[in-house]
Amino acid sequence: MNLRLYALNLLFVVLAFATVAQEKPFSTFYYQRASLFEKLPVDSTDIIFLGNSITNGAEWNELFPDKHVKNRGISGDRTTGLYDRLNAILPGQPKKIFLLIGINDLQHGASVDSVVHGIIRIAERVKTESPNTTLFIQSILPVNDQFGKFPNHTNKGPEIIEINKHIKRYCLENKLTFIDLYKYFKNKDDEKMNPEYTNDGLHLMGDGYLIWIKVVQDYIETKKERR
């Protein structure tokens, strides 16, 4: 009888942990940073850089001083996590959003179609809930496997190219601005990220962020919506 009771208690504990795991699909860092963003205001003068670790890694307010630029990147974020935290952004009706997301979805085994759907889902929500926000969808950056790091990210070169192609088409069809960062970061002779801009094949060094700034400068400074 005691053994049966022990087994039942153990089963309840296992089920409880499984439920918690299901309810917390993202990293502890995700929830730490997302909870901070929920406390920070967003208003109609703000320009939001929204994405994963590649966005998270920049000091956007220093790279664009006096432009109301705010960093809303979270390392490891995916399209589903980013979609969920739009709740802390869209009510403020920001002036502009620069979106870059998708590589971590691939690392977790998502298909090209799934990533494209996730990005479009985010874009459609922005258009619906914050119609005065100018949305800029940035291409996923190239990767480079020569560093031997992040192998489940840096082996996704062909998938990245396909996603960028589909998202560019979506933007053209829906009169949104697609910013092709990819071409500025790839090698001249192949599709790998230029090692001058990275030290792990995935994330950017300082020079990489300066390239990014040059590419998006006009979109920050003006109301230009198409290139």
Results as ranks from 00 to 15, higher is better:
residue 49 F to H: 05
residue 90 L to M: 04
residue 94 P to G: 08
residue 79 T to N: 08
residue 46 D to V: 06
residue 91 P to M: 04
residue 92 G to W: 01
residue 17 F to T: 11
residue 102 G to N: 08
residue 64 F to H: 05
residue 78 R to M: 10
residue 48 I to Q: 00
residue 107 Q to K: 15
residue 65 P to R: 04
residue 16 A to P: 00
residue 67 K to R: 12
residue 24 K to P: 06
residue 16 A to I: 11
residue 96 K to N: 07
residue 135 L to F: 03
residue 59 E to V: 14
residue 95 K to V: 07
residue 68 H to C: 09
residue 48 I to S: 02
residue 29 F to R: 14
residue 82 L to N: 04
residue 49 F to E: 03
residue 36 L to P: 06
residue 143 V to R: 05
residue 106 L to Q: 04
residue 25 P to L: 03
residue 113 D to F: 07
residue 107 Q to A: 15
residue 115 V to N: 11
residue 126 V to C: 08
residue 52 N to D: 15
residue 52 N to T: 14
residue 49 F to Y: 07
residue 97 I to P: 04
residue 96 K to S: 07
residue 134 T to R: 10
residue 79 T to M: 05
residue 98 F to K: 02
residue 46 D to G: 04
residue 105 D to Y: 05
residue 52 N to E: 15
residue 43 D to P: 05
residue 90 L to T: 02
residue 86 L to W: 00
residue 46 D to R: 02
residue 126 V to G: 02
residue 51 G to E: 04
residue 108 H to L: 15
residue 45 T to C: 11
residue 136 F to I: 00
residue 65 P to K: 05
residue 95 K to N: 10
residue 146 Q to M: 13
residue 22 Q to G: 12
residue 68 H to W: 01
residue 51 G to D: 06
residue 84 D to S: 14
residue 98 F to Y: 05
residue 41 P to E: 14
residue 36 L to H: 13
residue 94 P to D: 06
residue 111 S to A: 14
residue 67 K to M: 12
residue 16 A to D: 10
residue 98 F to H: 01
residue 101 I to Y: 07
residue 31 Y to E: 08
residue 102 G to C: 10
residue 19 T to W: 11
residue 144 N to T: 12
residue 99 L to E: 03
residue 128 T to S: 15
residue 44 S to G: 14
residue 140 I to S: 09
residue 11 L to D: 09
residue 81 G to R: 00
residue 43 D to E: 11
residue 33 R to S: 05
residue 30 Y to E: 06
residue 117 H to N: 15
residue 64 F to G: 04
residue 33 R to V: 10
residue 51 G to F: 05
residue 103 I to L: 13
residue 99 L to Q: 04
residue 75 S to W: 03
residue 138 Q to D: 08
residue 23 E to R: 13
residue 94 P to C: 09
residue 86 L to F: 00
residue 26 F to E: 11
